[in-house]
Design a protein around this nucleic acid. Sequence first.
DNA 1: CTACCTACCTGAAGCTACTTTAGGTCAAGC
DNA 2: GCTTGACCTAAAGTAGCTTCAGGTAGGTAG
Lengths: 120, 120
Amino acid sequence: MMISEVAERTGLSISTIRFYEKSGLCPFVQRGSDGKRRFSKTDADWLELLASLRSTGMPLVEMRAFAELYASGDGKVPERKAVLLAHRRRLEDRQAELDRCRVILDRKLKRYDEIIKDQA
Amino acid sequence: MMISEVAERTGLSISTIRFYEKSGLCPFVQRGSDGKRRFSKTDADWLELLASLRSTGMPLVEMRAFAELYASGDGKVPERKAVLLAHRRRLEDRQAELDRCRVILDRKLKRYDEIIKDQA
DNA sequence: CTACCTACCTGAAGCTACTTTAGGTCAAGC
DNA sequence: GCTTGACCTAAAGTAGCTTCAGGTAGGTAG
């Protein structure tokens, strides 16, 4: 699979994928004899997982630690589990923030509507 | 109100509040004769709203546009409403992303548990 | 009275996570 | 053979902060 296809499937930009490779988040991607990256299905799935973690707030440094655990195989599965559990707690926090913001927005919007009505 | 109190109430850091002022997100904050910032209740509320918008993904450039509308008074309430409505749509997107990630995490975690069980 | 502590101030440099730009390779199509 | 398009690299630029270095003003302990 070429880089543009992976970009499409993961939602990451091509530059971001290259940047991730350089940052050690997917150092295992092979190259063809033409020097271009060839992504396996597994590579693409891994990047899809990274994209999901990233877009919900995992910092790169944590993703890199996770990538290193991933690279050292199934022996590190308990550690990998811990990373994902920690991230799930982060999801809860983000969820709460979204909810709080929604309440604030709805209150504000209601007040705006009253002002608009009064102006009319 | 001094800056540290506003920081505590909004969850923004002191540096971020200063940075926001410099960026034109709250250019109306008064100074005492000692040169220090004095925040009114209104200022603090405004910053709390900004904090909420920011933490849920509104970019600074959009917040600045919103601040300018805010500064020009109730005439701009319809435009302000539009900004908040657009942001509420963004909340939906973020929500969906969180949900998607949660599904992926739970699936992964289940698989990890199986691997751990098999290893034991 | 002076020495120190704390809370504020500024401007500038540093950091994270990308994005954009400039310049280059190579195969395919006209 | 010349252009177009997809890839490549290294380097510079950007967003949104944070940290640092250096400075002022008030309060208090010796």
